[in-house]
């Protein structure tokens, strides 16, 4: 797994004037009110904001778990708003890797088979799945934990298994939702270091959603959200700054 997808001229994900409106008990909740941003191949970004700011909703949209109510959301150049459920699932399976706060590993399944899980839905055969899962576990420093079950692993190890799972499908983008939220400081740092190393070595874009200021300060680009809008985007490209600015001005 030494290939890189890094191509700084294209976006791994691009959101253009994205709105997301929920109906909850008859009331309309406008979780996102016009968000535009682009995340380039190989970029390392943090999204932060208070609860209710829309950062989780944005993460679900970026991860193709959900579709925008309006606006365009392009993953690898494809507009998710136009995809059916199967199409969205395919995007999730091949373009995105998820890392969750609570790890979300299958309890009765070995580390290796947990990591191999996304490949099941891509029709990869068992032997190849295991080989690739083993490779991914080696990349996160868990080569010695292949057949351990989650309960036999520490929290930090579990999260590294989850990172290996996010990477095994060679996605464009890894979305990490509070990846250190359930970990102590030392384990949290190690998990972040692992993510950063893989971002560097493999050129996979990494987006960390967090409200932990210390975590949010690590990536070169920080996007702040409030009330369903991007209020600050520490992006380094003028086009992105521009689109973020237009979102704010709406």
């Amino acid at each position: 797994m030494t290939e890189t997808r890094q191509d700084p001229t294209t976006y791994a994900i691009e959101a253009v004037d994205v709105h997301r409106v929920y109906r909850m008990d008859g009331a309309e909740v406008r979780a996102l009110r016009g968000v535009s941003l682009g995340i380039r191949e190989g970029e390392y970004v943090a999204i932060t904001g208070p609860s209710g700011s829309g950062k989780s909703t944005l993460m679900h949209l970026l991860g193709a778990l959900d579709r925008p109510s309006s606006g365009r959301l392009l993953v690898g150049g494809r507009d998710t708003a136009k995809l059916d459920d199967a199409g969205l699932a395919r995007v999730r399976g091949s373009e995105i890797g998820f890392v969750f706060q609570s790890f979300q590993l299958l309890a009765r399944t070995t580390a290796r088979d947990n990591v191999a899980l996304p490949l099941v839905y891509r029709g990869v055969g068992r032997a190849e799945r295991r080989a690739r899962a083993q490779e991914a576990l080696e990349a996160v420093g868990l080569a010695h934990r292949l057949t351990h079950r989650p309960t036999q692993l520490s929290g930090g190890e579990q999260q590294r298994v989850a990172i290996a799972r996010a990477l095994v499908g060679r996605p464009r983008l890894v979305l990490a939702d509070e990846p250190t939220g359930n970990l102590d400081t030392a384990n949290g740092r190690e998990v972040l270091a692992t993510l950063e190393r893989l971002n560097r070595e493999r050129g996979v874009a990494v987006v960390i959603v967090t409200h932990d200021a210390e975590v949010a300060a690590r990536p070169p680009r920080l996007i702040r959200m409030r009330d369903g809008l991007i209020v600050a985007d520490g992006a380094d490209g003028p086009d992105i700054a521009g689109s973020a600015g237009s979102a704010v001005s709406r």
Binding site: G63, L65, D85, A86, A89, R90, R92, G93, S94, F98, Q104, L106, L117, P118, Y121, R122, R165, G169
Partner: peptide, 15 residues
């Protein structure tokens, strides 16, 4: 939760 996870990892409805 397992179903949600499987879907997040690329499982389609019919899977």
């Amino acid at each position: 939760r397992e179903i949600g996870l499987r879907k997040a990892l690329g499982a389609r409805q019919r899977d």
